[in-house]
C-alpha cells in the first residue's frame, strides 16, 4: 500500500432531527452545549467512534482492516483462535533493547488495524516508537446555530421490580434537539500518512465512512442523523498549498433568507456555499453528497 501523496482538509455537515447526537456525561446525558454560545457540540472522539464502527461493518473480517478500539456489539461475530501467548517473558520495562523490534511492532499494528493507521494509537509507554500519530485529525463539531435541547418525558407500561407493581408504569426521560446542523473540520497530513501507510484506498474508505456512518448508527437516542455534505479540499503539495483556516472560511453555511427569526427545523432552512472562485492555486475542491 502506498501512502497518500496529498494533504487534505475536509468539512462535514451533518444534522440531527429529534435526537441527541452526543450526550454530556457531566449534564445527565443532555446534548453537549457550548456554555458560551449555546451551540451544540459533538466531540471528535464521538465521530471517530462512528467511523470505526462503520469500517468494522464494511470490512468485517478483511485482512488489514481490523479495528483495535472496539465496541462489544461490533465484535460478536469474531472468532477467537487460541494461541499460546504464554511463552513470552515480560521484558525488562526499561528502555527498549531493540529499537528495530519496537518499530516492527508499530508497523505491524499499522498494517493490520485501520484505526491505528488512521487515527494513531498509544501502545506501551517505554518505547517511544510505540506511539503512532495518525494522519487524520478531527476537531470538535459545532452546530451552526444555538440549539435548544428539550426534555421529553416518556412512560413504560411495565416496572422493573416487583415491589413497584402497583405503580403499573415507570417514567423515563429523553433529551432531544429538535433540529441541529453541525459542522466539523478535519485534517489529513500526507507526511504522517507516509509513516503509517494510510493509502488512497483508506482515504476513500474514510470518505465512505464519513458519508455513511450515521446510517449504521441508528438508535432510540440518536433520532434521525444524517451526513448532509462533505467538502474535501485537496492540496497538490504534500505539505499543503494554503492555510487550512482560509479554506474553511470559504465554506459558508447560512440561513435561507427571511427565516432568520424562526428556528431552523430542516436542512433546507440552510444554504451551503463554497467559494470556489477565490480558492488559492493548487487546491482542488470535491463536494460529495
Amino acid at each position: 500500500m502506498t501512502a497518500i501523496a496529498n494533504r487534505y482538509e475536509f468539512v462535514l455537515l451533518f444534522d440531527v432531527t429529534n435526537g441527541n447526537p452526543n450526550g454530556d456525561p457531566d449534564a445527565g446525558n443532555l446534548p453537549r452545549l457550548d456554555p458560551e454560545t449555546n451551540q451544540g457540540l459533538v466531540t471528535d472522539v464521538c465521530l471517530k467512534r462512528k467511523i470505526r464502527n462503520y469500517v468494522g461493518l464494511e470490512k468485517e473480517d478483511d485482512a488489514g482492516y481490523a479495528i483495535y478500539m472496539q465496541e462489544k456489539s461490533v465484535l460478536n461475530n469474531q472468532h477467537k483462535k487460541a494461541y499460546d501467548a504464554l511463552d513470552i517473558k515480560p521484558e525488562s520495562k526499561k528502555l527498549p533493547k531493540d529499537e528495530a523490534k519496537a518499530r516492527d511492532l508499530t508497523a505491524w499494528m499499522c498494517q493490520n488495524f485501520f484505526d491505528v493507521r488512521t487515527f494513531g494509537a498509544v501502545m506501551t509507554t517505554e518505547i517511544n516508537s510505540g506511539q503512532v500519530r495518525g494522519p487524520v485529525q478531527l476537531a470538535f463539531a459545532n452546530s451552526i446555530d444555538p440549539v435548544v435541547p428539550m426534555e421529553v418525558s416518556i412512560t413504560r407500561m411495565a416496572v422493573t421490580n416487583e415491589k413497584d407493581l402497583e405503580k403499573e408504569r415507570t417514567m423515563g426521560r429523553k433529551h432531544i434537539i429538535p433540529y441541529g446542523l453541525y459542522r466539523v473540520h478535519g485534517y489529513i497530513s500526507a507526511k504522517l500518512a507516509e509513516r503509517t501507510g494510510f493509502s488512497e484506498d483508506d482515504i476513500e474508505l474514510l470518505w465512505r465512512a464519513l458519508i455513511n456512518m450515521f446510517e449504521h448508527d441508528r438508535s432510540a437516542a440518536r433520532g434521525e442523523m444524517s451526513a448532509r455534505k462533505l467538502i474535501i479540499f485537496k492540496h497538490d503539495n504534500p505539505m499543503g498549498n494554503a492555510p487550512a483556516h482560509k479554506l474553511f472560511d470559504s465554506v459558508k453555511v447560512e440561513r435561507v433568507d427571511g427565516e432568520l427569526d424562526s428556528p431552523a427545523r430542516q436542512y433546507s432552512d440552510y444554504r451551503v456555499s463554497v467559494d470556489t472562485e477565490s480558492l488559492p492555486a493548487g487546491v482542488g475542491v470535491d463536494e460529495r453528497l
Binding site: 483495535y68 494461541y83 511492532l105 505491524w108 501502545m123
Partner: peptide
C-alpha cells in the same frame, strides 16, 4: 494502553483476533 506483548504474540500467531480493546468495558 495496549501492551507490547499482546502485539508480539499476535505477530507470532499471525492473526489479529486477540488484539482489541473493548472500550465499553
Amino acid at each position: 494502553k495496549l501492551p507490547e506483548r499482546t502485539v508480539k504474540a499476535a505477530m507470532r500467531a499471525g492473526c489479529v483476533d486477540d488484539v482489541h480493546y473493548f472500550v465499553d468495558q
